[in-house]
Design a protein around this nucleic acid. Structure first.
Lengths: 216, 216
DNA sequence: CCTACCGATCGGTAGG
DNA sequence: CCTACCGATCGGTAGG
């Protein structure tokens, strides 16, 4: 290449909006945008019916660009679920910490878990966990094992609270069945709950408590 | 073609198993085989991830042959759900008839509905309703409206039974929320129930009754 | 992160 | 219901 051409390159700043440097922060932002868009699309159309082109477009990218951030479409699905579960675990831990500080009863502990779960399922930015609930079969066995470990952690708090309530006779059913039924009842709400109409998540929590613990 | 070749064709019956005539009964059987295979595949892999070639192979056909029986892959999905709902409605009506003959209480009526629902979800040949529960978003709006009408009929019996129990104070929650939570709890069982191990459907029904109606 | 592209696969069809 | 096929689309990649 003739030296004159490179030497002719001016040293002034480029006009217009400066191109952001591809530093670590920025790369995390783009990756995060991909994850949010993918979560929304996976939830609304399903994993197999969502194309990587859909996901790229949602983040304002060209069709091949998601593969700069994620190895494959399957890796994107896994990342959505993993990030969803880690956020859910943080949210649950925070709620339990507050309940412990209040010396909450077993019943109030359950209420805390129900309310936190509704937030995870139906609160703002809540596409990640619904994707996990309804795209489990789209994971590879190895991915499933990883997510299952996070789910076990999440359900431990439920198992403990329900065990206490069963032992006290407040709930009269096998603790495992009670846990599966309660979580199923709550998880189903993603199918019918409309945020802008009907009961608030606080009201829904009270309804659930009255339904499962009618004595108090 | 030389006449000798066609004239040489013998008039005797072909050897081996006689090819079944494509009469109405037979066509219904083949169609039914396609539906059963499609239901199983849609349940295990999801609608979008199942190819019409998978479905053809499950029925022992070549790749283009399902389209002799169904207009499109979408029509197959709709037929699976519609047939599933019609069978569920028949099963529910039969159970309710027996309960009415026994002058069943509201509580026994609910037990009857729970038991019939478990059969629909988890009993033998129960792939059709799980497909409906987890592939709703794969339907076109027009298909959705048709299936929703059948679902409304199915849920009417639940609404009536729960309304009676709420009015009597046996269940202390909004009747609509109670219905959504109960059906959600039961529907979730398709995610964890293993027919060959754990509780039977009768035992599970008793657990559900104790959980939701603990007073009696 | 974009451009340009590839091989594979998919739903569906014409003709028999 | 099979054979042979088509146009479209898809996940993913090389090179920059």
């Amino acid at each position: 290449m003739p030296e004159s051409l490179t030497a002719a390159e001016p040293q002034r700043r480029p006009r217009g909006r400066p191109r952001k440097a591809p530093d670590a922060l920025d790369e995390g932002n783009r990756r995060q945008e991909l994850l949010r868009g993918a979560a929304r699309l996976f939830r609304n159309k399903g994993f197999a019916a969502t194309t990587t082109r859909d996901i790229a477009a949602a983040a304002g990218m060209q069709s091949g660009s998601p593969f700069y951030h994620f190895e494959s479409k399957a890796a994107l699905l896994f990342a959505v679920m993993e990030q969803g579960m880690r956020a859910a675990l943080r949210s649950q831990a925070q709620a339990l910490q507050a309940a412990a500080a209040d010396r909450a009863s077993s019943q109030d502990l359950l209420r805390t878990l129900v309310r936190a779960h509704f937030d995870v399922l139906l609160g703002p930015g809540s596409d990640f966990i619904p994707v996990m609930l309804y795209e489990w079969r789209s994971l590879t066995p190895a991915q499933r094992a990883d997510i299952a470990r996070l789910q076990r952690d999440y359900e431990t708090a439920w198992a403990d609270a329900l065990q206490a309530l069963c032992a006290a006779g407040t709930i009269r059913a096998d603790a495992r069945v009670a846990r599966l039924m309660m979580l199923g009842a709550l998880n189903w709400s993603v199918q019918w709950y409309k945020p802008k109409q009907g009961a608030s998540l606080d009201e829904l929590t009270e309804q659930v408590m009255q339904l499962f613990l009618p004595r108090n």
